[in-house]
């Protein structure tokens, strides 16, 4: 028996909106520690890892580990039927082939339940070790989204370079080139507007903008995004999900050969 009650139901709506274009079908893994997901896009270039810790739920009951295979587009369709301030409860029986989403309005005057069929999904799980990164950039998520969107009108790839001067996003295309430099800005009064760069060594990596743009669908979840870079390792683009967890996107770099 699984029963997860999330008062901030709007968070789950935002999580699904940020996943559904990258991944079609995925297994949500439920255990005593939380509700998580790891899935790759169809070309196995990008991966998303989601964790919502059990403490973040108002009520969290998970009698035994369960894996719920869901079509993310269909799940997003159902969650779109919840209001942003609704309380969302996810329910499933151990042997059931369906999951129920219950939406309650904050004053309890409207209660809806939507039942969705589960799927058997044969997914590949990757072991991702904790890594030390050469550079970690924390910046406003809206600024990062704007940069990715702007650069993708000019080129297909972005070179992200971190030096002690700042972080530079560069692209080139048929019509020309573009460089955007963001300097460190601690913004003590408004921490959500800060740009903080922790650099062990300068690093420069090339990525497909199409995927970066897809990751920025998570912008409504968090004011800040963290971009972790190391030479010849996938970049990690992380958005915190309130106080309860994170959504991390991994993208393999492009390599010149």
């Amino acid at each position: 028996m699984l029963e997860l009650r999330l008062v901030q139901g709007g968070l789950l709506k935002k999580v699904l909106e940020s996943l559904k274009d990258l991944v079609n079908d995925a297994n949500f893994d439920c255990s005593a520690s939380g509700f998580s997901l790891q899935a790759m896009d169809s070309s196995h270039v990008a991966l998303v890892a989601l964790l919502l810790r059990s403490e973040g739920f108002e009520h969290y009951r998970c009698d035994r580990n369960l894996s719920l295979g869901m079509n993310l587009n269909n799940m997003a369709k159902m969650l779109k039927c919840a209001a942003n301030d609704d309380i969302v409860t996810i329910k499933a029986d151990d042997a059931s082939d369906s999951v129920t989403f219950m939406f309650e309005s904050p004053n309890q005057d409207k209660i809806a339940d939507f039942e969705m069929k589960l799927m058997d999904i044969d997914s590949e799980h990757l072991g991702i070790p904790e890594a030390e990164f050469q550079a970690i950039v924390r910046m406003p998520s809206a600024e990062f989204a704007r940069i990715c969107k702007d650069l993708s009108t000019i080129g297909d790839t972005v070179v992200i370079s971190v030096t002690k001067e700042g972080v530079k996003f560069s692209t080139r295309g048929d019509i020309g080139t573009a460089n955007i430099v963001c300097r460190q800005n601690p913004s003590i009064d408004k921490p959500e507007e800060a740009t903080i760069i922790e650099m062990e060594e300068p690093v420069s990596l090339t990525f497909a903008l199409r995927y970066m743009n897809s990751f920025t669908k998570a912008t409504p979840l968090a004011n800040q995004v963290t971009i972790s870079l190391s030479a010849d390792l996938p970049v990690v683009v992380e958005y915190r999900v309130a106080e309860m967890g994170y959504i991390r996107f991994y993208l393999a770099p492009k390599i010149e050969e």
């Binding site: 196995h44 270039v45 990757l126 090339t206 991994y250 492009k254 390599i255």
Partner: peptide, 14 residues
């Protein structure tokens, strides 16, 4: 030429 790598070149399958 620039080649796009895949994630299994970095992370092992569990």
């Amino acid at each position: 030429d620039i080649f796009q790598r895949v994630l299994v070149e970095y992370f092992d399958s569990k």
